[in-house]
Design a protein around this nucleic acid. Structure first.
Length: 760
DNA sequence: CAACACTTACGCGGT
DNA sequence: GTAAGTGTTG
C-alpha cells in the first residue's frame, strides 16, 4: 500500500484517501488527474474498504476507460473483472442488453451512430412527406438529441410555436420508428437506461446497493441526462468521486453542462472539494500564460496552476501575411526543432477547425516532413465496412430498415427505386419492416427482393454455428462485396479493409472473452457463470455482469462494439511524425512543443461563438486547453489573410493576445497595428528567428499608389474607423476593400469615397 | 443505373 | 476549395 501512495503530492494524497463520501476534485491540466482516479480505486480496494464489485467508474471515451483498466491492473494484484469501468454508453448498453425485456427492447437491438441517425431521419422525413427545407434533417437531429440529452421525451418537450410543435411531433414519430426497427441512438442508450432504472424499483435498488463507489472522469463534460443518471445510480448511499476541470469545459455545444459541477457540490453535500493545482507538465511561462488568459473568464470555480519546473522559455508569437506563409514558417521552425533533436511525435500543430489542416499538410508534404492527422475517418465509418456490418445487422435483426436499404441493392442486384417504393408502400400499409414486407410485393420486383431475403436467410443458416471471424468471412463471400470491389478499379484498399474486418472480429473475440466455439448467433445460453441474484423482494435479477456473454450473442456484441467504438482513424506516415489535430482533439494529450495556429478574430475565437453569450468564454477555455498541452515550448501564430470557403479573408489578430502576459511572450515578428480596436503593439521586437525574414518581405509588398496601402487605417464619415485590407485597380480605378469592423467589409472607390488616413 | 454538371454549405466531435 | 447532395442525361 505504501508504494501505492508514496509518489503523490499532498493534494493528490488527500484526494486519494478521502473518506467514503462524495467528493469533487478540481483537477487542473497536467495535475495527475487519471493517476488520482485510479489510485483512489486501488487504495479503496487494497485497504479492504470495498470489493471490486462495488466499483463503478465512468468515462467519456473508450480510450480513457481502457487506460484506467490498464493502470488498475498494474496497481492491483487482483483481476479487474467484477469492476465496472466503461463509458456511459458502454455501461448503458450492457445494462440494456441484460434487462432488454424490462427496457422494452429486442434482445438484438442495434445502435445507430450519428451518421446512421442522420440517414434514419432523412428517411423518416421522406416517408412522411415532410419538406426537408422547412425541417432540415440536421436541425431535427439536434433537436431530438438535445431533448434526449436533457432527459426529455417528446411529450415532455415544451413547444411555443408551430415549428417547434411539428418538431416535437417528428421526435415522437422518430422514437416510434426506432422502436419498430429495434434500433437506438446514442442518447437513447442513456435515456432508456435512466427510464428503466427509475421505473423499475427492484432493479434500481439492486444496482444502487451494489455500487457503493461511483467515480466519474471529466465531470465537466457531463450533460443533464448523464448527471441525472449518476444521481439515480448513486441513490442516497453511494459515494460519488467526481473529477473535473471547469476551465477545460469545451463541449457545451454538444450539451455538456459545467453547471453540473456546482450542482453536484450542492446536491451531493460535498464536504470535500480538493483542488489539484500542482502542474507536472509545463514550464512557468506557459502556465503563466494559461493562468492569465483564463482569468478573463467570469464564471469559474477558481484555480491557479503552479509548477516547480522553472520559467523555461518565453512563449513565441509569430505573425504571417498569409496562411501559406504561416504554414511555411511552422515547417521551418519544426525542422529546426527536429534538427536540434526533437522527435516529430513530440511536436503538435493545433488548429481551431479542420479546414485549416489542408494548408499545413501541403507545406509539410512539400517539405517532406512526415506527419499524422488526427480526426480522419475511422475504421468502422468506412463505406465498405458499413456495408459489411449492415449485412450482419440484417442477419441479427432483419427489421433494421437502415441496414436493409443500405445493402438491398449493393452490390447492385437489380432492385431500383421503383421496387423499393412498392416495398415501402407495403411496409407502411401493414406497419411492418421492409424485410417483413417483401412477401407482399408481387411481380418481378417481388422476385428480386425475395432473392435478397433468401440471401440473408442463407447467410444466417450457414453461419449460425460458426465462430465470429468465420462468420465474417462467409458474409463477405455471400454478400459478393469482395467480388464487387475486385472489379472496381479503386477497390484494392477497400478489399484490404474488408479483410481487416476478419482480424477485427478475431481480436474482439479474444479480448472480450467470446470463446471460439460459441455460437455466433443468439442460441441457448452457454454454461458461463450466470449469477442469479435475489432482489430484495424476491424477484430474480440476472446481474448485467455475468449476463453479458450469455444474453448477448457474439454477433450482437460485435455489432455493438462496431457502433460504440468506431476504431482508430487512419494514421498517415511513419512512426516519428508531426502531430496535427484540432484543439478539441488535443485535450488530454501533451507534447514537448506545441504550435497553436490561426489566432485570429473570427477563427479563434470562432465567429459563431459570438452568437451565444457564453461562447467567447468557451473559446477562451479552448485556448486554455491548447496552451496547457505544451511542456517546454509553445508557439502561437496568426496570419493577416486566410483562404476560407474559397475566398480570401482578412483577419485581425485574436483578442486573446491582449489577455496574455506581456512578460511571458516573445514576439518574433512585427506587431503591426492590426486592429482598429486599438491594440497597443506597433514596434518590432526581438531578433527575428528562422523564417521571419521571408515573412517580413511577404507583407512589405503593399500595393496601390497615391499613398494608400494595405493595413492603412482610415476614417469614413458613415462607417467610422476601418482598415484597408486589399486594393484592386490603380489610379482613378483603384478600389479598396475596407474592413469597418461592425459595419463589415466595404468595397469603396478610392477616388470617390471621402476617406481620411488615421494611425501611423 | 452510371456518369456528369450543378448547387450548396461549410465549427469543434466521442459515444 | 471541396465534399456531398441533387438533377439531368445517355
Amino acid at each position: 500500500m505504501q508504494n501505492l501512495l508514496h509518489n503523490l503530492n499532498s493534494e493528490q494524497l488527500a484526494a486519494v484517501t478521502l473518506p467514503a463520501q462524495s467528493a469533487l476534485i478540481l483537477a487542473g491540466a497536467g495535475s495527475g488527474k487519471t493517476r488520482v482516479l485510479t489510485t483512489r480505486i486501488a487504495w479503496l480496494i487494497q485497504t479492504g474498504q470495498i470489493s471490486p464489485q462495488s466499483v463503478l467508474a465512468v468515462t467519456f471515451t473508450n480510450k480513457s476507460a481502457k487506460e484506467m483498466l490498464t493502470r488498475l491492473s498494474a496497481m492491483l494484484p487482483i483481476n479487474t473483472r467484477g469492476m465496472w469501468v466503461g463509458t456511459f454508453h458502454g455501461l448503458c448498453n450492457r445494462l440494456l442488453r441484460a434487462h432488454h425485456k424490462d427496457a422494452g427492447l429486442p434482445q438484438t437491438f442495434q445502435i445507430l451512430d450519428s451518421s446512421d441517425q442522420l440517414s434514419f431521419i432523412k428517411r423518416l422525413l421522406k416517408a412522411n412527406n415532410i419538406d426537408d427545407e422547412k425541417f432540415p434533417p440536421r436541425t431535427l437531429m439536434y433537436f431530438i438529441n438535445g431533448a434526449k440529452d436533457k432527459g426529455l421525451r417528446a411529450a415532455a418537450v415544451d413547444a411555443y410555436d408551430d415549428t417547434d410543435r411539428k418538431m416535437v411531433a417528428l421526435y415522437d414519430l422518430y422514437d416510434a420508428q426506432c422502436q419498430r426497427e429495434g434500433v437506438v441512438d446514442f442518447a437513447e442508450l442513456l435515456l432508456r437506461t435512466y427510464e428503466l432504472l427509475s421505473r423499475n424499483q427492484p432493479l434500481r435498488e439492486h444496482y444502487q446497493s451494489r455500487f457503493k463507489h461511483i467515480l466519474v472522469d471529466e465531470f465537466q463534460d457531463t450533460n443533464d441526462l448523464q448527471y441525472k443518471w449518476l444521481k439515480l445510480m448513486a441513490g442516497n448511499q453511494a459515494a460519488v468521486f467526481a473529477v473535473g476541470d471547469d476551465d477545460q469545459s469545451i463541449y457545451a455545444f454538444r450539451g455538456a453542462n459545467v453547471g453540473n459541477m456546482s450542482a453536484f457540490e450542492r446536491e451531493f453535500q460535498v464536504k470535500n472539494l480538493i483542488k489539484l493545482e500542482q502542474n507536472y507538465r509545463s514550464h512557468g511561462h506557459i502556465l503563466d500564460t494559461a493562468n492569465a488568459l483564463i482569468e478573463h473568464n467570469s464564471k469559474r470555480l477558481g484555480k491557479n496552476l503552479r509548477t516547480d519546473a522553472g520559467h523555461g522559455e518565453l512563449v513565441r508569437i509569430s505573425e504571417s501575411s498569409s496562411d501559406i506563409q504561416e504554414a511555411q514558417w511552422i515547417v521551418e521552425e519544426a525542422k529546426n526543432l527536429m534538427r536540434e533533436g526533437s522527435s516529430g511525435s513530440e511536436i503538435a500543430i493545433l488548429y481551431r477547425s479542420n479546414a485549416q489542416s489542408r494548408v499545413l499538410e501541403h507545406a509539410l508534404f512539400t517539405a517532406g516532413l512526415p506527419y499524422r492527422v488526427y480526426g480522419g475517418q475511422r475504421y468502422f465509418e468506412r463505406a465498405e465496412i458499413k456495408h459489411a456490418i449492415a449485412y450482419m445487422q440484417l442477419m441479427d435483426n432483419p427489421h433494421n430498415d437502415s441496414a436493409f436499404l443500405r445493402v438491398v441493392n449493393f452490390p447492385t442486384r437489380g432492385i431500383g427505386a421503383r421496387s423499393l417504393e412498392q416495398l415501402q408502400d407495403a411496409a407502411k400499409q401493414y406497419g411492418i419492416s421492409l424485410y417483413a414486407a417483401v412477401p407482399y410485393v408481387s411481380g418481378k420486383a417481388g422476385t428480386s427482393l425475395g432473392n435478397f431475403v433468401k440471401l440473408i436467410e442463407g447467410a444466417r443458416f450457414e453461419t449460425h454455428n460458426l465462430p465470429l471471424p468465420e462468420m465474417v468471412k462467409v458474409v463477405l463471400d455471400i454478400s459478393t462485396l469482395l467480388i464487387h470491389y475486385q472489379t472496381e478499379k479503386e477497390g484494392a484498399d477497400r478489399i484490404e479493409n474488408l479483410e481487416q474486418l476478419i482480424n477485427a472480429a478475431t481480436l474482439f473475440v479474444s479480448e472480450e472473452g467470446y470463446g471460439h466455439a460459441a455460437p455466433a448467433l443468439a442460441g441457448p445460453p452457454s454454461q458461463l457463470a450466470a449469477s442469479l441474484l435475489s432482489a430484495p423482494d424476491g424477484i430474480q435479477i440476472i446481474d448485467a455482469d455475468a449476463a453479458l456473454p450469455t444474453v448477448m450473442s457474439p454477433l450482437s456484441a460485435f455489432l455493438s462494439h462496431a457502433s460504440l467504438e468506431a476504431g482508430d482513424n487512419q494514421a498517415q506516415a511513419g512512426q516519428d511524425a508531426l502531430q496535427l489535430m484540432t484543439v478539441h482533439a488535443a485535450k488530454g494529450l501533451e507534447f514537448d512543443a506545441v504550435f497553436i495556429t490561426g489566432l485570429e478574430e473570427g477563427l479563434f475565437p470562432h465567429e459563431n461563438s459570438a452568437k451565444e453569450e457564453t461562447g467567447v468564454e468557451e473559446e477562451r477555455r479552448l485556448m486554455y486547453v491548447a496552451i496547457t498541452r505544451a511542456r517546454k515550448r509553445l508557439y502561437i501564430t496568426f496570419s493577416q489573410t486566410r483562404m476560407l470557403h474559397g475566398q480570401i479573408r482578412y483577419n485581425t489578430r485574436s483578442r486573446f493576445f491582449d489577455e496574455m502576459p506581456e512578460e511571458s511572450l516573445k514576439w518574433l515578428s512585427p506587431k503591426v497595428q492590426a486592429s482598429w480596436f486599438g491594440n497597443k503593439k506597433s514596434a518590432w521586437d526581438d531578433a527575428p528567428e528562422s523564417g521571419v525574414n521571408a515573412i517580413a518581405q511577404g507583407f512589405a509588398k503593399n500595393q496601390g499608389g497615391s499613398g494608400w496601402r494595405i493595413g492603412q487605417g482610415v476614417m469614413h464619415a458613415k462607417f467610422g474607423e476601418g482598415v484597408i485590407v486589399n486594393i484592386e485597380g490603380s489610379g482613378t480605378n483603384a478600389r479598396a476593400h475596407i474592413n469597418f469592423g461592425q459595419f463589415g467589409m466595404k468595397l469603396l472607390d478610392l477616388s470617390i469615397a471621402k476617406l481620411d488616413k488615421i494611425g501611423s
